[in-house]
Nucleic acid binder design. Structure first.
Lengths: 332, 332
DNA sequence: CTGAAAGCGCTTACAG
DNA sequence: CTGAAAGCGCTTACAG
């Protein structure tokens, strides 16, 4: 039975519960001798403070809320890994909240705040700009520290951790342009995500700069659906370069191309984003932008711990480096 | 500001806080008229009960602990999706705990219990049998409801939700045997997981039944590492059938085989487990056992809610159906 | 149907 | 350095 309370410990150690509490929270304020006695009893009884009671009394729950839209996306899961590792280091617990399409973001956020989390990590990247302002207002009104992870919002006051997706989009497009590709498509999602908007912006900038016509083809994240889209695509479009906003989309496109006997990378170069296992397991292997997803999770969690313990943190907007992993699906 | 407390509501509505509490928890005990008045004030003030205070007073936190070992595995992430959806339906919050290799399971479990969760969902499938007994004892001693999800333990008293992995392993092996394959390998993980043990058992049973020699080849989950293992494999082994305990392992094996000009499925049939996106995105597409991972998560969460609200639940061991999805990597 | 009061298990000024 | 006491924001018998 590990349901001993602080009273049991105090009684067994012959001290008041205030002293037990101090041993746990401010050990330096307790005389060495009594401290040892209390610690001994704590160990003997297997006492672990009830975190709920502690949360109520101290108004700190050492719990952070993680807001996501879809756990099953590989990048989200990996970010969670980074978050979880750092949270563990800092002794924070994680409460997971999933925002579904039919739910009101603001409402959920208020619920999360009612759960008394000490801070919020927002991984959802599907907010439109005015929505972001509303969200930001909620956080600020409730004075709750927050960080946007893997989300790019231009507002300088919003704490965020991401890579420069615009630049990455630009660079990967430039790579193909430098290899004399003219009909380069960006394969994006029908649903708008802030990060994909950035990739599109970078792609567009590179194309216009080279005097080429930017062409964005929107499809679904569902493999069965985009298979159809891509087959239709090939029947009426000329293409010698394609960039998928996700590896899985790029691989799916590459498979259709090869089913149709298109030479990759000879006649068609393909690249993806995220450098997931899909890029390694495809044939040919896929050139991809490596996004340090785990690090984004870890760094944003660390930033959040700073914000939770201090009012002025110097650098609240962190851009992590990315790089292009060149593989068989491109020539250069 | 949504930091109104129950006192504020009581004051504004001209009732005692006990009444406000009843409106929230036992509305039928409050006269229609006062109830409406209170609800109106609640809405006006944007009052949301502090769940921590409620948790302390009621000794129920409406929070469940989810124990996992690795979020980044696709099956874990998808299970989390199912868990999250059902938890949301039943108004439970989710606290996520990751058990890392260097950590003591029992110790973590005690921590989780100190967090006052109402129940625990255990997705970690790496426990050896005697470890399971210890874990079970902790749960029982602390009288905390628990469910093992996607884990197969034979103890009839342990609540669990899974598929019959032994049978699945048997069936997929039988499929290849029926197609006259003789040298069928099971590609398993070096690390032992309870579910993989079951797959191995089913595979072995089918092989022995057919008078064939079972051969288990153990490799890593890391694509770069198993690439080397598989190249070594082909240099000295005869093989005409291979079953990967995960799709990604099967696809990796298939890629190496094809790099070495082995005809798949002509000379070599390959199948995987889990029917993930990997199976769809590979070329040839991969035959795989469809494991209803989302459902396992959802059903185990539902079972947990039952266990949390009642002492005797009739069916605490649930086996979900699976089926084989035949694709290009096998002939039959 | 409603209110006054005790209590959930802690933390934290305040005294001493 | 330590203890007595108030308080965190709720719930829940117990009266009435």
């Amino acid at each position: 039975m590990s349901n001993a309370t602080i009273y049991d410990v105090a009684g067994a150690a012959g001290v008041s519960l205030a002293t037990v509490s101090r041993v746990l929270n401010n050990p330096e304020k307790v005389k060495e001798e009594t401290r040892q006695r209390v610690l001994k009893v704590i160990k003997e009884l297997g006492y672990r403070p009830n975190v709920i009671a502690r949360g109520l009394a101290s108004r700190k729950t050492t719990t952070v809320g993680i807001v996501i839209s879809d756990v099953t996306r590989a990048s989200v899961a990996e970010m969670l890994g980074g978050i979880s590792d750092i949270a563990h280091n800092y002794k924070y617990s994680i409460k997971l909240f999933t925002i579904r399409e039919d739910m009101d973001v603001i409402d959920i956020l208020k619920d999360i705040i009612a759960e008394q989390v000490d801070g919020i990590l927002y991984l959802n990247d599907e907010l439109s700009t005015n929505r972001v302002e509303e969200v930001e207002k909620i956080f600020i009104d409730n004075q709750i520290p927050f960080v946007f992870a893997n989300v790019v919002y231009d507002d300088e006051k919003v704490p965020m951790v991401s890579i420069d997706y615009e630049k990455a989009g630009y660079e990967i497009t430039k790579l193909m342009i430098d290899d004399d590709r003219k009909d380069i498509y960006l394969l994006s999602t029908a649903r708008r995500y802030s990060v994909n908007d950035k990739k599109e912006a970078g792609y567009t900038r590179a194309m216009l700069e080279a005097g080429l016509q930017p062409r964005i083809f929107r499809t679904s994240g569902d493999t069965n659906i985009n298979r159809q889209h891509f087959n239709a695509f090939f029947s009426d479009k000329k293409v010698d370069g394609a960039i998928g906003v996700r590896d899985s989309i790029a691989v799916s496109f590459m498979n259709i191309a090869r089913d149709r006997k298109v030479d990759v990378p000879g006649k068609l170069e393909i690249a993806g984003f995220q450098n997931t296992k899909y890029a390694l397991l495809s044939r040919p292997t896929l050139t991809s932008i490596d996004v340090p997803v785990y690090d984004i999770g870890a760094v944003s969690m660390r930033l959040l711990t700073k914000l939770m313990s201090s009012n002025d943190v110097d650098n609240i907007r962190i851009i992590l480096p990315h790089y292009i992993v060149k593989r068989e699906s491109t020539k250069i």
